[in-house]
Computed example of a mutant assay.
Amino acid sequence: MDLGISGKVALVTGGSAGLGLAAAKSLAREGCDVCVSARDPEKLADAVVELQEFGKVVHAVLADVEDPAAARRVVEETRDVLGPVDILVANAGGPRPGRFDEVGLDDWDAAVQRNLLGMVRLMHAVLPEMRSRGWGRIVTITGRSAREVIDGLALSNAMRTAVAGVVRTLAREVGGEGVLVNNVMPGPIETERLRQLAGDEAALRERGAGVPVGRVGRPEEVGDVVAFLASERASYVNGVSLLVDGGEARVIA
């Protein structure tokens, strides 16, 4: 299936590893020129090498979305090098795990800056040009906790839900202008964060055994969903928060 996005410019934050890198690869595979941003210079350099294998133009920006000035700088640098952003994949590492009484107010402040306001600032930075062109795609990557609370992840439960609310609101406001806004909610995917939460390989396998499909997911399985939502083929999908969790969530809607 031709997704119809060859030649589009995609910006992926948190794009040096895990789900962000997987999304960047899927978009590059579909013919997008890709800018990835992240905080770790070594991982960012490695990501560029991997993405260049797809034969598309790749750019990298060292940035931390917790920095209020980062979003506009990343978008402006992407525009200067690749052109205006057609596709934004707003992704950031998850907040600190812990129960409500285990996380302090500083942890809440950091989570709001990285996992909520960081994404909102990115949306503000790309929207004017998307609206003026009459085409754009914004895809946020959150987690299953946006739909169903997960014990021991108080910050994630709050931040992911807030982002899903922003997505649904913005989708209704700009969908008529050709800008579609959607959210992807991964379940257990084999990333560094899941490995940290699981603790060891045995616990990771046990985690996967509890999923209806019998395993944890692969990052590329999330990346391909992101690419679809960013495509012309998803032109009537707007305001959705889509579970990619192997059927683990028990919620109906």
Rank of each mutant, 00 (worst) to 15 (best):
D2W: 00
L3E: 00
L3Q: 06
G4R: 03
G4P: 00
A10I: 12
V12H: 01
T13A: 06
C32D: 05
C32Y: 04
C35F: 09
S37T: 12
S37L: 09
A38E: 02
D40H: 11
P41I: 06
Q52F: 02
F54E: 07
K56Y: 01
V58L: 09
H59R: 14
V61C: 08
E66G: 15
E66P: 02
D67T: 10
E76D: 15
R79F: 06
L82W: 00
I87C: 03
L88Q: 07
L88P: 06
L88H: 11
G93S: 14
P95Y: 08
G98C: 07
D101G: 00
E102R: 11
D109A: 14
A111C: 13
Q113D: 15
Q113W: 02
R114N: 11
G118C: 09
L122I: 12
L122S: 05
A125Q: 03
S132Q: 14
G134S: 06
I138L: 08
V139R: 08
V139G: 03
G143E: 07
A146N: 09
D151S: 12
D151I: 05
L153A: 12
T161G: 15
T161Q: 14
A164H: 10
V167Q: 02
V167D: 12
R168K: 15
R168H: 13
L170K: 03
E177L: 11
N182E: 05
N183M: 06
M185D: 12
P186G: 01
P188F: 15
P188D: 12
P188K: 01
E190Q: 13
E192D: 15
R195Q: 13
A198P: 02
E201N: 04
E201S: 12
A203T: 12
R205T: 02
R205S: 13
G208W: 05
R218E: 05
E220W: 14
V226Q: 09
N238F: 01
G247D: 05
E248D: 03
E248F: 13
R250Y: 06
V251N: 10
